[in-house]
Design a protein around this nucleic acid. Sequence first.
RNA 1: GCGAGAGUAGUGUAGUGGUUAUCACUGGAGCUUCCCAAGCUCUAAACCCGGGUUCGAAUCCCGGCUCUCGCACCA
Length: 482
Amino acid sequence: MTKVEEIIELAKRRGFFWQAFSIYGGQSGFLNYAPLGVLLKDNVIGIWKRNLLRHGAIFLDSPNVTPEEVFKASGHLDRFSDIAARCRKCGNKFKAESLLKEKGLIPKTSEEARELLMANRIKCPVCGSVQWDSYDFNVMFKIQTVDGSNLYLRPETAQGIFTDFKLLLNFNRGKLPMITAQLGKGFRNEISPRQGLIRMREFNMGEVEAFLDSNRVNFPVFPSDNMIRLVPNSSEETDLKLSEAVKNSMMGHDHAFFMDVAVDVLKDVGLTGSSVRLRQHRKEELAHYANDCWDAEADIDGEWIEVIGIADRGNYDLTRHQQFSGENLEVTDDGRSFTPSVIEPAFGIDRICFAILVNSYRKRENGYKYLSLHPDIAPYHCVFLPLQNKDGLDALAESIFSEMKKRDPRVGIDQSGSIGKRYARQDEIGTPFCVTIDYQSLEDRTVTIRERDSTGQKRIRIDDILALTVEEGKNPFSALYS
RNA sequence: GCGAGAGUAGUGUAGUGGUUAUCACUGGAGCUUCCCAAGCUCUAAACCCGGGUUCGAAUCCCGGCUCUCGCACCA
């Protein structure tokens, strides 16, 4: 088994994620988060949300189902709908538009495309046949109401924010810059969804739209000014602080600010160092709405995978929605009217979760596996283990457990099997600390705390555990082993 | 979507026309001289779905679904 296969095997066996609808054979492109995966994902989302709140973000939650007009305005309807041409002989599929481009022909319908392909004896690039079928292909899932209105499942959550821009700005008392964010699902009818959590038809995204005045610096102070590997599209890759990259004119200041925020989030979930980089899109790679885009990529077993896209959308979306809706979406500031620009960091929650699993997977010399998860994002913070299930050890463990779970619900207790088996079980799901109640505990109210990565142990007082203060998103037990 | 391969307990697997369907790990109950998956006993759990061939199909054929790899796709 390859490393990734081993991780997927562990993730299925221990309950991080499962194939969706598996009793009916499964459905390609859809996965279930299993019990531990849900906890991990919640922690990732919590880190995303707290980082944004820290910068004054406001949040929105808009519908998945979106009317056609919105995607006409956003450009997704045109750019997502293609006429596909299928060679009758070899079955290969192409964009009809690109096959007909050299003849200067632009088909309006799939029927017209087929006629043009046949009439001009366009050859299949693979087998040379001139026999074609054609059909409409849309990457957006189309649905209909009973009265026949066309609706789509959104391919990105961003449009919900753009269409509520005036309300959000009013809520923000008219002030720019304004950071808005939405956690939600996106849907894309991928032709061949693959690689588990990497390419799904329904996926979790945490999108941020920062509205700003492009004539000035909107976010002067970087939160961390992280040092990061940068891969620009026109020069050599280099390690730089983001402030230095801005000085070198590699990107705009406000764009770099959100790259810094993105790197902070990755740092908080435990993705750091050489496993993360920022790569600039090539011109031809840019989405229709983007002026510039840098992807935060994570190393997933030797392959760089986009986990966050930080796009400069300019004023494209607001300008388009102003045109199509007739609403005035300009902002007046200092007597000057303008359409705000947008920087959009879009976080791929599922990919971040998968990158976390892959990058935390370790093997000990004896072959036993463990997940070296950051203590703050592990599904369980600490698990209590009575060395024996008798002699009062079990009762003492249960009393500590029931006291602690009132304050930190991310604790567990495990009384089944040998102690080594229980340590191994917790190692596999990435529990960073195990507290073992042994015979000495009965005499002096001390216990041992074991750290997952080193397997080292310290003896601590039960009262010090009970005195821990719990802070949202933090593992309080880290304070006991330092 | 195309081509090739593959789908057997939760996981990984054995099984080339007739088996009570193999083994291991995991899970559960218990014993145990008890701090790193020890040992022992017991136990739960599977042939992807639908057709066909056959006296008889996990096994052969067809279709569907899913997975893997390559191609294409990835706004």
